[in-house]
């Protein structure tokens, strides 16, 4: 699909570091993910107590989206028409494995609804939507690898058909202590072209110009 859309902002969270538009904004010691996530939350001055109830995948998606959307989504606004299109490799398996552990032993059976609800990968989209009141298009996909061409086309079709005014595309991968989140904002105006090459550069954190 011919595209005249642009990428206006991107954020990467990996290996206990946060990069915004290619610049390292935060890094911590190599601590476990939950500690690192809390440190990012504090360092960026976030204030959303529900964060602490989320599973790790939702925390990862939340933090990245928070940085992307901080001055984009208007608080309390009814019509933030910003679509969320996320994908990853491990779906919700990090929490799935924890939930399975809770029902594995028939003598020690303790399924928890608070854990079970996170055994779906699209819950992280729900968390971000609630946070920013995004009553907008959303979809979660699972791919072996980051699907740059698919993501590009899907974002373009949402914008071209008027289903969304802006699109946040994201790769939110987390399993145990291995995590990597890459998100970028696609819109109709801007300088950096929304094409497969640029998206791949963003994904590999090798784009330095934004």
């Amino acid at each position: 699909m011919e595209s005249s859309n642009y990428i206006s902002k991107y954020c990467i969270i990996e290996e206990h570091s946060v990069f915004v538009n290619g610049r390292k904004q935060f890094a911590s010691e190599p601590v476990p993910f939950t500690e690192f996530a809390k440190a990012v939350y504090k360092d960026f001055g976030m204030d959303y107590p529900k964060f602490f109830k989320m599973d790790s995948l939702s925390k990862l998606a939340f933090l990245t989206a928070e940085i992307i959307l901080e001055d984009i989504a208007k608080p309390g606004e009814e019509n933030n028409n910003i679509a969320l299109v996320f994908a990853n490799r491990s779906s919700s398996l990090d929490t799935d494995a924890k939930y399975q552990d809770s029902i594995q032993d028939k003598k020690d059976y303790f399924p928890s609804p608070a854990v079970f609800v996170y055994t779906l990968p699209n819950i992280c989209i729900g968390e971000v939507s609630i946070r920013h009141q995004l009553k907008s298009e959303s979809a979660f996909f699972v791919f072996d690898e980051f699907p740059s061409e698919f993501m590009k086309n899907y974002a373009d079709v949402l914008l071209a058909t008027g289903k969304a005014e802006k699109v946040v595309c994201g790769w939110t991968e987390l399993y145990r202590e291995k995590y990597r989140s890459v998100m970028y904002l696609v819109e109709k105006q801007g300088k950096t072209e929304h094409n497969k090459e640029i998206i791949n550069q963003i994904y590999t954190n090798s784009l330095w110009t934004l």
Binding site: G126, S129, I130, Q133, K135, A139
Partner: peptide, 17 residues
């Protein structure tokens, strides 16, 4: 159309938004 409620992770919006 596939629009999120932005309301609750385990329950639907009361208004069906």
């Amino acid at each position: 159309g596939a629009v999120n409620d932005a309301n609750h992770i385990s329950g639907p919006s009361r208004t069906g938004e």
